[in-house]
Design a protein around this nucleic acid. Structure first.
Lengths: 235, 235
DNA sequence: TACACCAAATTGGTATACCAAGAATCCGAG
DNA sequence: CTCGGATTCTTGGTATACCAATTTGGTGTA
């Protein structure tokens, strides 16, 4: 069973294309365009689009579809959400996680240490936060963090990542693990919150500064999302 | 057939059926079954199922679909998530919300006061939390709360809601608004957290106690993890 | 030139036919 | 009656035809 389902494969392909900016933020997508581009029929294309939509990577634009624009306001909102969820999660983790789980996280972190490989470092950075949230034992919190990291993933290809900055982020992660080891939930939560806040601030500063240049590369960054249509009915 | 989109209508119908327990938790769903039941073709049925899946109301079971089972562990996880998000949101709201917004929320609460009408009270109860989160100015937080309330909505048809309990919940909501009026974010957050914790505790206690009885009515409540495979198929 | 109007093309929405995999059922051998 | 295997049914996955609504382009008129 090499191709169990075309949908999953197609979904991954489109998703990757969005995350790597191969499909530019704000770009218009047509079902038939994707159909021919990825060589699949409309049914799996539609399924992929709907899933991508629920992940926030793709959005409806009137009747059609667009790649979700990079939205500085959304990035800020994500940081706030992450701060709330991740700090609560780590507080829970300090109480619930087994020593072995914490050590496994420490090991994951250690393995990402050298950060020589850009892509590897990027991926590991997001994974750390998801794994950390997982230690809370609360699957929904972990899922929320994963969703947030997904929405943020595209910015990682833009952000400046000096060796110092990466080393710094790594050290902050390590401090969190250390606090976890000592079962100091409050400290761990504070560290996580500060880390998220700082990282976000750097990111937003960078994006704001570079907005003009990035636009020159055909990359639009909006400042306040196109007003999501308000709906009246909520069951 | 003039209706702009059948999908939206079908989606609402199925969603309502799930939320009202007309479609029982754990029940197996087939695309063709829904197709004939709701008189639509498979395409919109599949779209609705995928959307419902992203809302957590429907789930894949192997190759097929089931209505998401009521899961006490998930309910607990939702409470933890809500506590994290809503308390952070209300803290933000205390700083950001306009006086008019706060008054509008107070009015919404006031209008739900008599709670004579069961269904109205139920809906308003969930709405309050969503509107409250909206005052944070963080759309993603509000969306997270809305999602959590959706996942919890089915329990409201089961829960005992004595007039005292409802009056009590209403009073707790009111205390939050009062704290908001005074721009006391810390107190508002503490009140929200306590309210969520208490409500959840009552709910879980009730579900645990009544689990046997509810099962007698063909309603399965799982304690952990998925997969109750086959349950209520007409007794 | 500006503009109104019509025709063709494009698009998402919908319906449906076909497929392979799995489940259920039937039937005959023992 | 039991068991094994073949047949049939059902199911989700996929491909595709058709539709209505928009968009697009062109064209003729004032």
């Amino acid at each position: 069973m090499a191709p169990p389902n075309q949908t999953a494969q197609l979904f991954e392909s489109v998703r990757t294309a969005v995350l790597t900016l191969e499909l530019a933020p704000g770009e218009r997508l047509t079902e038939r365009g994707l159909e021919s581009r990825f060589e699949a029929s409309r049914t799996p294309v539609r399924a992929a689009l709907m899933r991508l939509e629920s992940e926030g990577l793709v959005r409806r634009d009137g009747r059609g579809w667009i790649v979700a624009p990079l939205d500085i306001d959304e990035i800020g909102a994500l940081a706030e959400l992450r701060e709330a969820v991740e700090s609560a999660a780590v507080r829970l983790a300090a109480v619930r996680a087994s020593g072995a789980d914490i050590e496994a996280l420490a090991e994951l972190l250690e393995s990402a240490r050298p950060v020589a490989d850009e892509e590897h470092g990027v991926r590991a950075g997001g994974d750390f936060h998801v794994e950390l949230a997982q230690l809370s034992g609360n699957a929904l919190m972990a899922e929320a963090v994963r969703g947030a990291m997904t929405r943020l993933a595209r910015t990682r290809w833009l952000e400046v990542r000096t060796p110092e900055a990466r080393e710094n982020a790594w050290a902050e992660h390590r401090a969190v693990v250390e606090a976890l080891r000592e079962r100091d939930g409050a400290r761990a939560a504070a560290l996580v919150a500060a880390h998220i806040r700082d990282t976000n601030e750097r990111l937003v500063t960078f994006l704001t500064d570079e907005r003009r240049r990035l636009r020159g590369h055909g990359l639009a960054i909006v400042a306040s999302g196109p007003v999501p249509a308000r709906e009246a009915s909520v069951g």
